[in-house]
């Protein structure tokens, strides 16, 4: 009897407490209800959820909120989710979104110790930003990679690693989401986002040295010396020379690789091209150039067709090879 009473009272008091608290919670929830657009949740679910900030907003939810409020989606892009995510988000919002080409981070410095002699020794916290506040770097090139790996730490996707031999960061393309984190963190602005290009083939000037040719070459064997040879050889006006530094516009570059051969210091780098087999293989590039020339007028009018065209080009390229 006594035991029963205890159990009864316990049950009664606990459930009573539960009911009272539930009521309070309910009242509070109703009173302070935040009316939120349900589409925010929907879009938030679509997004990758990495909260990397690559879109320029604080986390994925912030981006979702901004998307819902925006009139036009042109200025928005989730680099991690890419076009598919953006399309899905646009369809929820009933808006259009322009397709953007996939981008990837490239490291524009080849100054490994064998090319670029160290002239001093930095002693301090192992962080590029702190070294860059101390002085211009431990070699004669004041623009070069400091090699302390701030970019590696900034990357949320395990897409950039230091190569222990070259002391330079290397991007793992498959992981790179072009979130811009490494670009922002690099104090010497060495990392750049470039269009991944067809078949992930890219050509770029792997140097950011703006010194005149003499000092640049003296500081580093593979520096861009601003000779302008590449500018002359480029048939597409894709290369510009400013402050003694060549730059290849990835929108204009047709991947003909002429500049790569022309560069006297090997500062221009090609990525993911099939290896050249010396003399016999010299033909493909000119061929490619011709076909690309034909496609050029179309480029400006229609991007999609250009992509198709290029795909065909590269396909034919391969069949020839």
């Amino acid at each position: 009897m006594n035991n029963m009473e205890i159990i009864l009272y316990t049950l009664l008091s606990l459930s009573g407490l539960g009911i009272i608290l539930a009521l309070i919670l309910y009242v509070v929830a109703q009173r302070f209800k935040v009316v939120e657009d349900p589409r925010i949740d929907e879009i938030d679910e679509l997004l990758p959820g990495a909260n990397c900030g690559g879109c320029g907003y604080p986390g994925c939810r912030g981006f979702a909120e901004a998307l819902v409020q925006a009139d036009s989606l042109d200025d928005f892009y989730c680099p991690v989710g890419g076009n598919e995510t953006m399309k899905a988000a646009a369809s929820i919002l009933g808006k259009e979104v322009a397709e953007k080409e996939k981008q990837v981070a490239v490291v524009r410095c080849q100054g490994s110790p064998e090319h670029r002699k160290k002239t001093s020794e930095y002693d301090g916290p192992q962080s590029c930003i702190l070294e860059s506040k101390t002085y211009s770097g431990d070699s004669d090139c004041p623009y070069a990679c400091l090699g302390l790996g701030d970019c590696v730490e900034a990357c949320d996707f395990d897409a950039i690693h230091m190569n222990p031999e070259t002391h330079l960061p290397e991007v793992i393309e498959a992981n790179c989401t072009a979130c811009n984190a490494c670009v922002e963190v690099c104090p010497h602005d060495i990392i750049e986002l470039r269009n991944a290009g067809k078949k992930s083939r890219r050509i770029y000037v792997s140097c950011v040295n703006e010194d005149k040719g003499g000092p640049a070459k003296k500081a580093c064997d593979v520096a861009c010396i601003g000779c302008g040879k590449c500018v002359k050889v480029c048939a597409f006006d894709a290369i510009t020379l400013e402050n003694n530094l060549a730059y290849i516009d990835y929108e204009k570059c047709k991947l003909c690789r002429k500049c790569v051969d022309e560069c006297p210091t090997n500062a221009i780098v090609e990525v993911n091209f099939p290896p050249k087999k010396k003399k016999t293989e010299k033909k493909p590039p000119p061929d490619k150039k011709e076909t690309e020339k034909k496609s050029q007028p179309k480029d400006n009018t229609n991007q999609a067709s250009e992509n198709e065209q290029e795909q065909q080009n590269s396909n034919s390229d391969e069949t020839k090879a």
């Binding site: 160290k118 002239t119 001093s120 020794e121 930095y122 002693d123 301090g124 702190l130 506040k133 101390t134 002085y135 431990d138």
Partner: peptide
């Protein structure tokens, strides 16, 4: 010798 550089 390479000079050592650090902050004060």
């Amino acid at each position: 010798n390479k000079l050592i550089v650090s902050q004060s």
